[in-house]
Write a protein that binds this DNA or RNA. Structure first.
Lengths: 192, 192
DNA sequence: ACCTGAACACCGTTCAAGT
DNA sequence: ACCTGAACACCGTTCAAGT
């Protein structure tokens, strides 16, 4: 078997999409690649570095898609970010768990802050606002994937009664836009 | 040794505050309690149930504090939530990983939604807005605790240059209020 | 240069057995 | 009722050894 970092990362993503993060071990990954676990350590220093590579790979996909968008605004960034995160099961957890300043991720962070500046956000607030926007999308996708996984563990019935037919994760696109609106209007309201 | 769920949960919180979540195993916890790992399974079905108990314990602390506040508004809920989460290292991760509808947590969710309704949020939007508010505080505390842990792994210097002297996690209280303002003003702007 | 066998020090969990 | 010994099936990681 001829391994390289790319094929290992892609195999890892396949496993994630089948069984989720907790089923992804160096051993199951090796087995999927028809290789021994120790071999992976020739290509990655450790599991953390592999996870970092996955986050970076996803970030590069996002960068590539963004490059094709002209006059990209913050809405489009948020939507593309969400879409690409959704393509990899448990990606929000992976992003939370890894070092964020790899090349393509840094590009995204810088772009996000630039687009916020275009929205009128003061320079002193950029890091907080950027973090908050990032956290919003990550948490949103995490909730979506959690919801998709356990259609069982829902709200207890007495609870559900109180909030009938809401715009919720059953209407995920609408709900995402609503959340995004809150954030963007909030940004603008606090900069005026 | 006379064990019960409370003492086990408190010992677990102590370990979290010393070495963080990844150092908390059933075995290290048992050792801290001067007992064997198998004993813990008399009191908790499994590790997940223990984690759920910890989240519920933190939620009960929050409930107790809130009970003493008269005319509680959404700001105060957010601040007390943040403060109590900060008392337990890696608590945001624990909240994300566990079933949310335990008794005291459910009380907090219902209260949060009520306070949002007071703010003028439409009933149809309550679940999304509630989730978003919850995610905001959890992510914020997670970032604070991450920042406090690795004072090393900072922004790379070329990056830091672009954003001089921001209101960021080095001014955590100010930054939290700024983020909270964004959220609340955004809520109000999208309900008008 | 790239992969493996074999080991090390861990995990969560179960369950018959002890008191 | 409450705890333990001993085991099972896993982890991530290392490293001498193979090709």
């Amino acid at each position: 078997m001829k391994l390289d970092r790319q094929t290992i990362q892609l195999a890892a993503i396949s496993l994630l999409n089948e069984d989720g993060l907790e089923a992804l071990s160096m051993r199951t990954l090796a087995k999927a690649l028809d290789v021994k676990a120790a071999s992976l350590y020739f290509h990655f220093k450790n599991k953390d570095e592999l996870m970092e590579g996955i986050a970076e790979l996803i970030s590069s996909r996002i960068s590539q898609r963004l490059a094709k968008v002209e006059n990209c605004d913050f809405y489009q960034l948020a939507h593309i970010l969400r879409e690409e995160l959704k393509r990899v099961n448990d990606s929000p957890r992976i992003f939370e768990d890894t070092y964020p300043f790899t090349p393509n991720r840094t590009k995204l962070i810088v772009l996000g802050m630039k687009l916020m500046q275009d929205l009128g956000v003061d320079k002193r607030h950029l890091t907080v606002a950027g973090n908050m926007g990032n956290n919003f999308v990550l948490s949103y996708v995490a909730d979506e994937q959690y919801f998709a996984r356990d259609s069982q563990r829902q709200m207890p019935p007495e609870f559900a009664e109180q909030f009938p037919s809401p715009i919720d994760l059953a209407n995920p696109d609408e709900a995402f836009n609503y959340g995004l609106d809150i954030f963007i209007h909030g940004l603008q309201a606090t900069t005026k």
